[in-house]
Amino acid sequence: MINKMRNFERYGGRLFVYGCLAFLATLYLVPLWVMLITSFKPLDEIYSGSLIGLPKQFTFEAWSKAWSTACIGTNCVGLSPFFLNSLIITVPSVFVSTSIGAINGYTLAKWKFRGSDLFFAFMLFGCFLPLQAVLLPIARVLGMLHLSGSTAGLILVHTVYGIAFTTMFFRNYFVSFPDELTKAALVDGAGFFRIFFSIALPTAIPIAVVCCIWQFTSIWNDFLFGVSFSAGGSSPITVALNNVVNVTLGRKQYNVDMAAALIAALPTLIVYVLSGRYFVRGLTAGAVKG
């Protein structure tokens, strides 16, 4: 009898756990599902009112429209040039800021000097800085450098404001890198850079991946810098997407909006699905002290 009750309790509990998880998972997936099916529907079907049903008539029209003919303001070239802009902005910023972070993190963790921890603390605040507090000066400086409204300006801004994060990732990783190894290398006559390139860096590949993914996601998804410092043709995809969606002329093309949103989301989604573990490590790194 008692055994039976226990069993009931156990299976009931399992049922509750799986039930809740299935329900919540569905809830979390609904927006993505709605976006996907909407993007494959013809506009008439959308206006006949089916939000969650599968498309009766399956079409790629909205996708091709979003990619190559949707209007951003008066400029009807689709999202493709802006997708390219985002790539041009993101790739160099990610690599340069990650490289700087690697050497900074190594130095701060393994070559401490008086005040190096304070230095790190001051740097770390940069990770949480509300960018509104530096927006105006950035705009002025970009103007002085003749980089206003250019992708080069955005590359510069993303790179320098990424250094705080990338340094934090590498510093927290290298802190747990065994000192015995660096000491032994010192005894063998290796110097600062030799130890970095031949001993420390090769072990840091996972954190480099974490760092690259983090930087890629946050730069690709950036909107504030994009909307403040880019103009017309140099906008990143987030800004272009917002403009596509806010076109007020005529009947709202929800299918094109959704296709456009998915195009903007695909690169980060793909990176996330392929490397979820690293993505999560990057997310929680800010919460875990070094």
């Binding site: 927006p31 690709w220 998915l262 989301a265 980060t268 993505f279 999560v280 997310l283």
Partner: peptide
């Protein structure tokens, strides 16, 4: 549960 975190707030 985590995929929305990979999306831009605009999306």
């Amino acid at each position: 549960f985590l995929y929305p975190m990979a999306l831009s707030f605009i999306v």
